[in-house]
Write a protein that binds this DNA or RNA. Structure first.
Lengths: 139, 139
DNA sequence: TATTAATTGATAAATATTATCATATTGAAA
DNA sequence: TTTCAATATGATAATATTTATCAATTAATA
């Protein structure tokens, strides 16, 4: 439940935060701050853009959501804070979750002295929709 | 050789392009457009910021360099266009190459109809320098 | 060398994000 | 409950990054 997520993070429960988490929950689109703002504005006309950014940053900081750097144009947000990987369409930039637990071992001599704490895999490809569109035209 | 790289890409050989590729070659820092601009400006005072962006985008488009989306603040560029992975320091955001050939199999039922053509792994950790700094302080 | 098509550089514009701060709201204490 | 301090919001300004525009310049070739 969203209320719990906010409480657990030690944050105050505000309608704005609930609206953002409500929109994010079950959202598979990995929306940008603007996407979120626009979507919520319809039901919540007083929502400010700044609040969207504030809230997203706060939630990320508290580990309640994930910020994705996949899109070179803008940040995108993932309601699932647990480690998982992503499947990205090279054409339309659609992003899907992909849950596979790979055991990626890095030999000591390749660690460059780093202490490795996690990883994230981006799989690139072409989504079904774009493949259809492409088959209808020449390259 | 840089000249070849440019020729092969079907591009005109300009001093600006040479300067950028020269700076990028053997550079392990994965610099941003601004880093590149500033560094080159010292030896090449007429270089324009727009040209840096133009050139980087053109080179990327032709497959001569890689654009990294690892840094949420800005794009960073990698002189090595061949697939490889990256090791990122969570603290100072230093980025190092990591060359390991993992065979990442994605079962058909997890592909969501995508045709997968590649992948990129980001390993997160703390670099030796930051570990040292951290050991000297409380969290 | 002359030609032309590509490239550069100056600058403006667009986009995305962060900062500022007065006002409003939440949650806890009285 | 009401009160109050800390936190959050919303309006807006500021900053940062990237892209677009376009006249002037330059590279490649004929």
């Amino acid at each position: 439940m969203d209320r719990q997520k906010i409480k657990e993070a030690g944050l105050k429960l505000t309608p704005q935060r609930l609206a953002i988490l409500d929109y994010l929950r079950d959202n598979l689109e990995h929306p940008s701050a603007e996407d979120i703002y626009k979507a919520i504005l319809e039901r919540f006309p007083t929502m400010s853009f700044a609040t969207v950014y504030n809230t997203l940053e706060t939630l990320r900081e508290k580990g309640a959501i994930q910020e994705l750097t996949i899109d070179p144009q803008k940040k995108r947000f993932d309601p699932n804070p647990r480690p998982h990987h992503h499947l990205i369409c090279n054409r339309c930039k659609k992003i899907l979750d992909i849950h596979i637990d790979y055991q990626l071992h890095v030999p000591e001599e390749k660690k460059n002295g780093f202490e490795i704490v996690g990883n994230h895999i981006e799989f690139y490809g072409i989504c079904p929709g774009c493949r259809l569109k492409m088959s209808g035209m020449q390259s």
